[in-house]
């Protein structure tokens, strides 16, 4: 099974400084995408914006909301600047950012080209949110953005008719439910945890369950696609073999020692212990056993052995760690 449930966008109205939901011309990146798709980049008053501002890291890289970087927004913001410039000739575009994360193939080059098309880059401080307010009647713009500009150290105001908030990615509200359903774990931010971040990034700790895309962490489309293909290949690799190899870690019952009390039968969450009525003994179906060891700890006759986690091994470990 591949889990590829993706992300959800950060709710921009949580940062009150930006006036999202109150100022009609403050929109999210998702709403801007829709405008681009419909080929109509305009303000709520159906005017062409003369001044546009793109605000980075909305909900990301913040002490209050998400500490992590959402990875795709910086480059997407630069893309928007180009789109604005070509769709609305003469439009002044300000790019209000904290740090520019132009990682990966061709991205630094794209950043350089964005500066060349006269995008105005303005740096704001982490957790020192710019404040967006409605302009006064005399101003020739819809809104003013007040920013403590980091490079000059000055408090400045930027005119804007349209403000695009680059909302970050966050784990879906129902991610915990999904995690519980397929028995995988989430990290502190709610992203699904991979079996190993470097060596096994699409597998999970649950056999047969793989993760791909942004459900595991923020990433762009190429990375999501690469993961999805890797996950599919892992599954095909398993199926193509025709047989499934299971771990050598499982429980075994010593039939000589088993008293046939059947306590273990009820304990097994996988129904991996069968009772053989003819000999009045229980037996583990090793292919079904997942090796939790609940039965081993419960057997009153000490008849169940957990391979690789035997009583002798664990008792020796206890002696070892206390020696």
């Amino acid at each position: 099974m591949i889990v590829a449930t993706g992300y959800q966008e950060f709710d921009a109205s949580r940062i009150t400084h930006f006036g999202y939901g109150k100022l009609p011309n403050v929109i999210t990146s998702f709403e801007f995408e829709r405008m681009v798709r419909e080929g109509r980049i305009e303000t709520a008053e159906e005017r062409r914006p003369q001044y546009a501002a793109i605000l980075h890291c909305v909900g990301s890289r913040s002490l209050e909301f998400h500490a992590y970087c959402s990875r795709v927004c910086c480059m997407t913001a630069l893309k928007y600047a180009h789109e604005l410039k070509s769709a609305v000739p003469g439009c002044y575009v300000s790019d209000v950012y904290i740090d520019m994360h132009a990682f990966g193939k061709g991205c630094e080059d794209f950043y350089r080209r964005s500066s060349e098309v006269k995008t105005l880059f303005i740096m704001y401080g982490k957790n020192d949110y710019p404040v967006i307010r409605k302009a006064e009647p005399g101003d020739d713009c819809e809104m003013l953005i007040e920013v403590s500009e980091q490079l000059s150290g000055e408090r400045i105001e930027i005119p804007a008719d349209l403000v695009i908030l680059m909302v970050g990615m966050e784990a879906r509200a129902d991610a915990a439910e999904v995690a519980r359903l397929v028995r995988i774990s989430q990290d502190k931010d709610g992203w699904f945890i991979e079996s190993h971040p470097k060596l096994d990034p699409v597998a999970t700790t649950t056999e047969g369950v793989f993760i791909a895309g942004t459900c595991a962490a923020p990433k762009d489309i190429p990375d999501s696609v690469a993961q999805a293909r890797a996950a599919a290949a892992r599954i095909l690799g398993k199926i193509a073999k025709g047989i499934i190899e299971v771990d050598a870690v499982f429980a075994e019952i010593d039939e000589e020692a088993c008293s046939g009390c059947r306590i273990c039968n009820e304990l097994c969450p996988y129904g991996a212990i069968e009772y053989k009525a003819d000999v009045k003994r229980s037996r583990v179906i090793s292919a079904l056993c997942k090796a939790c060891g609940a039965c081993v700890a419960a057997c009153p006759s000490g008849a169940i052995r957990a391979r690789h986690f035997t009583d002798e091994q664990i008792l020796a470990e206890i002696e070892g760690v206390l020696a």
Partner: peptide, 20 residues
């Protein structure tokens, strides 16, 4: 703390605790 890894907390036989 000195760690002994078990597959599940249910594997912890009371014997282990007393032994420790």
């Amino acid at each position: 703390v000195r760690v002994v890894r078990v597959m599940c907390s249910a594997r912890v036989d009371p014997t282990f605790v007393l032994k420790a």
